[in-house]
């Protein structure tokens, strides 16, 4: 379910890093909790993001959830396809429905995030 090469946050984001290049998304657990996702609000390319601060939001019909940056960095690309097809976040949150690509300020930071196994037991406990 949760890819081993990703790192996870308590707020249910994932990050996949390759050197200083990173990809951020929300987890399958997050999309299940939100229900049908209808809109995604993402920052502009070039925006600086700060770990723990909101970088955008995901909306269902009756709720808005902030997306928190797992690490520090700068946005290099956003997933434009989500504007027309936010439903992808419900079907493929760990793949096609990634949210943003970033340049990490400090690639070491991901070490502080949860592994797949830790995250799985974390969401298990939350339920």
């Amino acid at each position: 379910m949760y890819p081993d090469n990703f790192r996870y946050t308590k707020e249910h984001e994932w990050v996949l890093a390759d050197g200083d290049a990173g990809t951020i998304g929300i987890t399958d657990h997050a999309q299940q909790e939100l229900g049908d996702i209808v809109y995604v609000d993402l920052p502009k390319v070039g925006t600086r993001i700060e770990a723990g601060k909101s970088l955008g939001s995901v909306e269902s019909v009756k709720a808005v959830s902030d997306i928190y940056a797992p690490v520090n960095g700068e946005i290099t690309e956003i997933n434009e396809s989500l504007a027309d097809a936010p439903e992808k976040l419900n079907t493929d949150p760990h793949g096609a429905a990634w949210l943003v690509k970033i340049r990490l300020s400090n690639p070491e930071e991901i070490q502080h995030l949860m592994s797949a196994a830790d995250y799985l037991s974390y969401v298990g406990a939350e339920k």
């Binding site: 809109y39 909306e59 019909v61 009756k62 709720a63 808005v64």
Partner: peptide, 9 residues
């Protein structure tokens, strides 16, 4: 589009 509105946000 009621997520713009006060009862949600």
């Amino acid at each position: 589009l009621s997520t713009r509105e006060q009862h949600i946000r």
